[in-house]
């Protein structure tokens, strides 16, 4: 396939993200990476579960966590997952403009989520004096939730870079795989969050 066919395909194939060998490789390689990320987060969850009883003073999970904010954050991230599905739907229909719009909405929802998380951490540190260093539970909590937050930040930067880089040209066989795996990454972030709100917040509240 010539470069021209990749950058300006005359007709878009059914699965633009897997039309080239590079695309197929990216698709598979990224999924494998997510398999590895599963173990990475499992190790963090394991550490958290081993240490969530190691609290100091009043700062126990039950005492600290407020479910309202967590619920809002969950809704934001779940919705952003749906909007990124919409973006991929429009990619399959070769509608570049709508894909960009839906991804932009995804980015805004992600930003809102990140804002809530920063507020939450700020709140714990300043209202409760609950920090990364105050107990093993504190270390484990901020590390697990912070790793997820870091993933959100990276995902947002990644999608934003894609949006800006490609705004003046349409969908092609070179950028379609990039969009596709970025959306996979975003879904995976949501997968991790489902376990975080269940294991850290809900189970923390139940005690």
């Amino acid at each position: 396939m010539s470069h021209e066919d990749v950058l300006n395909p005359k007709h878009m194939p059914h699965d633009p993200e897997k039309a080239t060998l590079e695309g197929k490789n990216k698709f598979l390689g990224f999924w494998f990476f997510l398999g590895g990320e599963t173990v990475l987060f499992a190790s963090l969850f394991g550490t958290y579960l081993a240490l969530n009883g190691s609290t100091q003073g009043e700062n126990t999970p039950e005492h600290l966590f407020g479910l309202e904010l967590v619920f809002i954050m969950t809704m934001l991230l779940l919705t952003s997952s749906l909007t990124s599905v919409y973006a991929m739907y429009h990619m399959k229909n070769h509608n570049f403009g709508k894909m960009q719009t839906w991804l932009a909405i995804t980015v805004f929802l992600g930003l809102a989520f990140l804002g809530c998380e920063i507020y939450e951490f700020y709140h714990y540190i300043h209202e409760y004096g609950f920090t990364f260093r105050s107990s093993a539970f504190g270390s484990a909590f901020y590390t697990l939730v912070g790793f997820h937050g870091g993933h959100v930040l990276f995902g947002l930067s990644w999608i934003t870079a894609l949006l800006l880089r490609n705004r003046k040209r349409g969908l092609n066989l070179y950028n379609a795989p990039k969009y596709y795996i970025a959306s996979l990454y975003w879904h995976f972030i949501d997968v991790v969050w489902v376990f975080i709100f269940t294991v850290v917040y809900l189970m923390g509240k139940v005690g």
Binding site: L51, S54, Q56, F132, R133, S135, A136, F137, S139, T143
Partner: peptide, 17 residues
């Protein structure tokens, strides 16, 4: 984190393991 940023994962005094 334990060695450079003062966390307590392996610090038994702060509940580490």
């Amino acid at each position: 984190f334990d060695r450079m940023f003062g966390s307590a994962f392996f610090d038994v005094g702060l509940g580490g393991n």
